[in-house]
């Protein structure tokens, strides 16, 4: 590419670039193919996905699976998506509030046992939910929280990742500014709200997306707590259908497609900001 390079060298470079694009496009095709097959499967007539030869695009388009889905013949789908929205929103709000608060506490105050508590918090990042699962279930039983939203939301409120992530962002608040605000008579809580939270806005928005996504797709704990179809989230509802209704697979696909649409919208709309911060945020922790 530099001016001194011979025609031979530029050809080699061009071929290499071509190879890079071909490889990447092939990888994208492999990545998107199952997804495209899902989308086209939702408008194929019943039984067409189980017919040879296998075709990507439908021979005729039908919206029958979508009407079936919203007629709630198999599962109360709309209701379950609504449940997912409510649970994911509440979980996100709770995690944001709790993480911002604890992040500020660890970032801007000295107190006895601070480092010990922080190390404990970090160590728990490697512990899976499985370690507490059975007693947590017993707790839900004795609190009468089975089949309730708080049974799903409250246990997800303390995110060790969130605490760590927000603390890192809030470390950037200058101590001088905090001290000056104190001398002006601002309360500690006010300093937190007017200095800590705005400065961590970027980190908080990334945490919001991550938390919402995690909660939206969560399966293990919701499948233990939520018992009735009316209260279940969409992954639990869909999982109950799979394997039992092969004849209604188009309807299951329609549901599967619809619940991924909001995810795609969020990522396409905020792609650069979210992906950059998400990657950097997670790698650094």
């Amino acid at each position: 590419m530099s001016e001194g390079s011979t025609p031979h060298a530029t050809l080699a470079i061009r071929l290499r670039r071509l190879a890079v694009y071909v490889t990447l496009l092939a990888a994208v095709a492999l990545t998107l193919l199952p997804y495209v097959y899902l989308v086209t499967g939702t408008v194929k007539s019943p039984g067409e996905i189980f017919r040879l030869p296998v075709r990507l695009f439908p021979s005729a388009i039908t919206t029958e699976h979508y009407s079936k889905l919203f007629a709630s013949e198999l599962i109360p789908f709309a209701r379950q998506v609504g449940n997912s929205v409510v649970i994911a929103t509440l979980t996100t709000l709770l995690v944001l509030a709790v993480s911002a608060s604890v992040g500020w506490g660890f970032a801007k105050y000295e107190f006895p046992l601070r480092n010990t508590l922080f190390v404990v918090l970090l160590a728990t990042l490697t512990l899976p939910l499985q370690v507490a699962l059975v007693p947590l279930f017993q707790m839900m039983v004795s609190l009468n929280w089975l089949d309730t939203f708080q049974g799903v939301v409250l246990p997800s409120g303390a995110s060790a990742f969130g605490a760590f992530f927000i603390r890192q962002a809030m470390l950037a608040v200058p101590d001088d500014m905090v001290q000056a605000a104190r001398i002006d008579g601002a309360s500690e809580f006010r300093i937190f709200l007017t200095m800590g939270v705005p400065l961590a806005k970027g980190a908080l928005s990334v945490l919001a997306v991550l938390t919402f996504l995690g909660s939206w797709n969560d399966f293990l704990w919701p499948s233990i707590v939520l018992r009735s179809a009316e209260r279940q989230t969409y992954p639990v509802g869909l999982a109950n259908l799979v394997g039992f209704y092969n004849t209604e697979y188009g309807t299951i696909l329609a549901g599967s497609f619809l619940v991924t649409v909001p995810i795609i919208i969020v990522f396409v709309a905020g792609r650069k900001h979210i992906l950059d911060n998400l990657m950097i945020g997670s790698v650094k922790s």
């Binding site: 990888a27 994208v28 998107l32 997804y35 939206w216 797709n217 799979v242 299951i252 795609i264 990522f267």
Partner: peptide, 21 residues
């Protein structure tokens, strides 16, 4: 980047539903 990230953002249940096909 977006295409490669997408599969990870989809629910494991949905992914399995597609992969049964």
């Amino acid at each position: 980047r977006l295409s490669f990230f997408l599969p990870n953002a989809i629910s494991g249940i949905v992914v399995a539903i597609v992969f049964r096909l």
